[in-house]
Design a protein around this nucleic acid. Structure first.
Lengths: 159, 159
DNA sequence: TCTGATTGTAATGCTATATAACAATACGCA
DNA sequence: TGCGTATTGTTATATAGCATTACAATCAGA
């Protein structure tokens, strides 16, 4: 599958608006509004995990391995939407810190089975706590009911 | 201001979910859900502008210049959230295609004033049409009322 | 058994960005 | 007025996060 263009991370920008500048009808476009919100989300995540050397992708990887013990690196790659080489780098990172271990698979000698270590589970729980707390702060502008609605609509949007 | 980490484009992944895989409680986190939605938005934008050599950032730049005639490159940079050098490259790109022109400013010889050319305005109108049409397709899963709600909540989220 | 596909890995390349340095110009203050 | 400092556009360089390619080992199917 051909991937969409680039547009990597916090590229199109920080979120802060420039006062006294007109943004045309950018706010009418879903893509733009979603992008802004997502960047705010990245910054929130960054604040929540400061100095922990974690990234959204790493956090996602940790979660998915935790939820699917014995997962293959390739499978992790497709779950993350990256090539196998990318998955390998994340796994290397996690293994180096003792969060994940690669075990041989009895049925297929080509691939590893990925498992969270005890340390990895602890780490994941800690991260979850932080992210959850930060989500609350991040979405503080919304009433509980609105947050629920927002999550529901976003879920519906990308099927 | 220190920028958050990297996390360029389609990092945490394409959108397609892997069947039979558990995603833990990723869906509870705003950051993740927003990211997924935003990636879907990127893909939609990509489809809407296929073969036009446009990117979200370029489209945003074009819009902002159009909405703020005489804008400075630095101002455009901060509006886009990039460094001046980044703004320059976008402007170079736009100028090369005759969409934007740099005019001298009477009050400040250091900076240019950016203006859409006639061609630029036409281009922008065309892009707007495409993006708007595609937004409709993109958000087709939502009822009109829901789209409106979503846009409102997202706007509220990043204030 | 032979052919083709899949897996992890390593080496390399690419792209969009930041960063740093520079010259020209503007601004503030004595 | 003059001088130090800040800002602007520009260029060159660095960097991060990927993809791409190539490879050997292994598996699966005819």
């Amino acid at each position: 599958m051909k991937h969409p263009p680039k547009a990597r991370g916090p590229r199109p920008g920080s979120i802060a608006r420039v006062e006294g500048l007109s943004y045309g009808d950018l706010d009418e476009h879903f893509g733009y509004v979603l992008r802004r919100a997502q960047l705010a989300g990245f910054e929130a995540f960054h604040r929540a995990t400061e100095r922990l050397d974690i990234t959204p992708a790493r956090y996602t990887a940790l979660t998915i391995v935790g939820a699917n013990p014995g997962l293959t690196q390739s499978a992790l790659g497709t779950a993350l939407g990256t090539a196998r080489s990318g998955a390998m780098m994340v796994v290397n990172w996690m293994e180096k810190r003792g969060l994940v271990e690669r075990r041989n698979r009895p049925d297929d000698a080509r691939s590893w089975g990925l498992y969270l270590t005890g340390r990895g589970e602890t780490k994941l729980r800690d991260l979850n706590r932080r992210v959850r707390a930060n989500d609350a702060a991040f979405a503080a502008r919304l009433k509980p009911r609105e947050r629920q609605t927002l999550r529901k609509l976003l879920g519906k949007l990308c099927g």
